[in-house]
Nucleic acid binder design. Structure first.
Lengths: 264, 264
DNA sequence: GAAACTATGTACAAAATCGTTCTCTATTAA
DNA sequence: TTAATAGAGAACGATTTTGTACATAGTTTC
């Protein structure tokens, strides 16, 4: 990891890290670091988006409504991304989805108006954000295909791996109840499948926590969607311009911190 | 319908119609009208996109791969849209999906390089296209949610209505085989459900053709997803600037041509 | 007009998922 | 310490979807 500029906290967000330092310096005064607390709603569905959030840590979930009290997840945002993409795409945009915090963390927040001004001024920012929109489309589309064709075990494995990659941890603070909600299935169904994974030694669960024990094993359980989306992320988001700050590739050959003392 | 400028064919594409006539005139030399033939592939998955297509007539389907010979539809493009959105979002973009022609028609084609140049020159074009990307995200996300939560009958009804709206016709040239492919389900399943709809008098089928008999009835069968996506399309794509050319709102209260002589 | 092909209708057992309900246990609150 | 609550495991039949197979009816080809 490169050390931060003196006096300034290090930036972890992949989009911001991809900006030329000159541009970043000019944007900096408008980026306010805010904590993200559990269940916090960053924007509601069909409501105006008043801030965008460059994720620094934690995990945010985007959901679409499938009728009465049935929300299904259509995207996950970690430090590679931005919550509030609607602002990029349309003046006075109201949100397509609901965005809420799944795993607490922090983000750099910017007012939507300021963000729009910044977009027209900085090509680097525009490029980085549009690139991220591209990735989000891949993610959502693959989610659609996966929901149509793949069984619960494969989808659950995919979701666990993808989420853990987003927060760069082998431990996921998440109840089965919530998981079922995100996948659009029954809670009891998740219970059965998760137990299967546990008895195969791939994960370990305890009330509201899921711990990865065997990454390779879980990847073998997941459907191709996992690999497709992760590879897309690497291709789309890990651009040459980020080289100067170093690159992180998770999920392929990068050992995550702490994986060893969790094994067994 | 407004009459076209003398000597020029009328433009039907919603994005192009939304452009100021001055901008459109400058783009015109780079827009080449091309026919779209059945099953034509406009771009393959993970291949470079060399042209973008502003749809004029017909229907193009975007699919994502869910493994071995399993493609699932994640979006439909009619004359409201553009095929090749990847070019907007990323320099040297390779396609996320496969795009192929479901219902023959025509489009205005433009070279990707030219399109990129045009985007940086014309704010109106950039706005219109990004707006469309926004709608595509809504569509794909709703598809993901729908695939997760809703049963085959609802999804089939949704698909039929949405497709017919896209081509502005009550008749859809489409086999059950193909339908099943798009929805990611068994062909026999579609057969049973479609028969149900037919015996309820909502549609009529004959080899490779589906005819809408009772729009209101079919809308009642469809899940909320249909309404959500159509409403989004109206909100996002039917912008004030299109007023000067007249606006079309399908699916809500607009009687489609020929609906009467098909009834009964 | 016969043959070949394509699209559709139908059937049946196997599997997956669902909705529901009931425990049991770990954690939290009083 | 006790009571209340939330998370997880398990069981039930009901429903949906699957995989597979075969029959029938339009359509095209020769």
């Amino acid at each position: 990891m490169p050390s931060p500029a003196p006096g300034l906290p290090e930036i972890r967000n992949v989009i911001l890290r991809g900006l030329p330092s000159k541009d970043l310096a000019m944007l900096r005064p408008h980026l306010h670091s805010v904590p993200l607390v559990m269940r916090q709603v960053l924007h509601a569905a069909s409501a105006p988006i008043d801030h965008v959030y460059f994720m620094e840590e934690g995990l945010t979930s985007l959901t679409a409504s499938a009728g009465e009290a049935a929300e299904v997840e259509v995207g996950l945002v970690g430090r590679e991304g931005l919550v509030g993409t609607g602002v990029l795409l349309m003046t006075g945009a109201t949100a397509v989805h609901r965005a809420f915090v799944q795993v607490p963390g922090s983000a750099y927040r910017m007012q939507s108006g300021t963000f729009r001004d910044a977009l027209s001024q900085f090509e680097s920012l525009r490029d980085g954000c549009l690139r991220y929109v591209h990735f989000m489309m891949v993610q959502t589309a693959q989610c659609a295909a996966c929901n149509a064709r793949h069984g619960l075990p494969e989808r659950l494995a995919r979701w666990l791996l993808f989420s853990m990659n987003r927060i760069e941890s082998d431990e996921l603070p998440m109840t089965q109840e919530f998981l079922s909600y995100m996948l659009g299935v029954r809670r009891a169904g998740v219970s059965v499948v998760a137990n299967g994974l546990q008895s195969e030694g791939l994960i370990r669960q305890s009330r509201g926590r899921i711990i990865l024990l065997d990454r390779a094993g879980l990847e073998a359980k997941a459907c191709v969607c996992y690999r497709l989306v992760e590879d897309s992320r690497a291709r789309i988001m890990e651009v040459p311009s980020e080289h100067k700050l170093g690159t992180v590739q998770y999920g392929r050959d990068c050992a995550l911190s702490g994986i060893d003392n969790l094994r067994s």
